[in-house]
Design a binder for these strands. Structure first.
Lengths: 202, 202
DNA sequence: CAAACAAATGAACGATGTTCAATTAAAAAT
DNA sequence: ATTTTTAATTGAACATCGTTCATTTGTTTG
């Protein structure tokens, strides 16, 4: 079969990412198959390579969608939470965990897909990935007010993300098996609040 | 070919794990191949399944070896470090990062290999994996002295490990790209020390 | 209506994990 | 010593994967 009028270039891209995203959510990264994703979309393998150039490109597009949903989930969780004390940051950490738990396969796939430094990420995808850091940056900055400068804040924001990420990753991989179900999130939040308190005065 | 006297059952197991370990270090988890590991050991694919039952079993054995080396590296780093203030815990965090950096592929493979809950880990391998937690537990307990009880210490130890893990994982995956090379380790240590200080009085 | 173009295909290739009947060496029994 | 039994090792077979690319086939242009 040759050119079809079923879908425009944009529609086709959207369709493939959508099916790929669903397949990744269903099977997880290790069992994901580009062939199967194309099959479900009603196209054949080659189309994936026509549209995304490579499997890496396809996975980047799929994972960027997850990043988008994730950022959206965090914003939704923050809606209407008053900026009293650490309330918004607590909501942020909890929403982080909630999203990862509700989207295990998709969330883990973000970190399962190791992107070679040689490959460059499309600008739009890069933006979707940085949106998350942006949210945390905004909220942490708001909490500190004028009590901190950029040189300190930027590494701290990364560190807080890494802290929560570590708890979430080990939790989903089963390393918290013997402990209370909500312990990982509670502990992550405790670490974040301790770090905030310790860095207030500097 | 049938039964050979080249290697005893123990020797064969050791040989395969050794070659597999080397191959994993060389190629990384995504490019690892049981076929190739067997080939390098001078055996054929089937032998892997005879000895380890499954690919998962093989990978568990290989990763357990990495856990062993890792624990050993931490103990070596702690040797001769006096228990003044947080010196030993600082050495621990630094050694954690140093091992991961020096064994990127092997370290990452530990977390790349997702083990199904259905599969049970051999007792010996389970012990190798818990040795690491044991070291941290021992050192944190020593630092606190009598100022903390088990109910608080156990979750805290897990949390400290998760904190350092998170920094290390994001570091090696390139998420700290724009920051100073030693920033991730420095930040991880800062978070650990803040957590220790905050939990001293409770 | 013909020529040019571009999208979609799917066979081909090399490689993977996994299984298992066949083979072969060692051990046990005669 | 010879035969029988046992167990370790093989590798072909199968389904599947990622990747490439000559071929086909719709669409658009001239």
């Amino acid at each position: 079969m040759g050119r079809r009028s079923d879908h425009s270039a944009k529609e086709l891209r959207e369709l493939l990412v959508s099916e790929g995203h669903a397949l990744l959510a269903e099977r997880g990264f290790a069992q994901f198959s580009a062939r199967e994703a194309a099959r479900r979309a009603g196209y054949s393998v080659g189309t994936i390579y026509n549209v995304f150039g490579s499997l890496d490109g396809f996975l980047i597009a799929i994972n960027s969608r997850t990043f988008g949903h994730w950022a959206q989930a965090l914003e939704t969780a923050l809606e209407g939470v008053a900026a009293v004390d650490t309330a918004r940051l607590e909501a942020l950490v909890m929403a982080y965990f909630a999203f990862a738990e509700a989207n295990r396969n998709l969330w883990m796939a973000i970190y399962d897909h190791r992107i070679d430094r040689a490959i460059d990420i499309p600008a739009q995808d890069g933006a979707a990935r940085e949106a998350l850091t942006g949210i945390v940056d905004r909220e942490v900055r708001a909490w500190f007010g004028a009590d901190i400068d950029d040189a300190q804040l930027r590494p701290l924001v990364r560190s807080l993300i890494a802290t929560v990420h570590g708890h979430c990753a080990l939790w989903l991989s089963g390393s918290y098996a013997l402990l209370n179900e909500h312990e990982p999130a509670r502990q992550a939040l405790a670490r974040v609040l301790e770090a905030l308190a310790a860095n207030r005065m500097h």
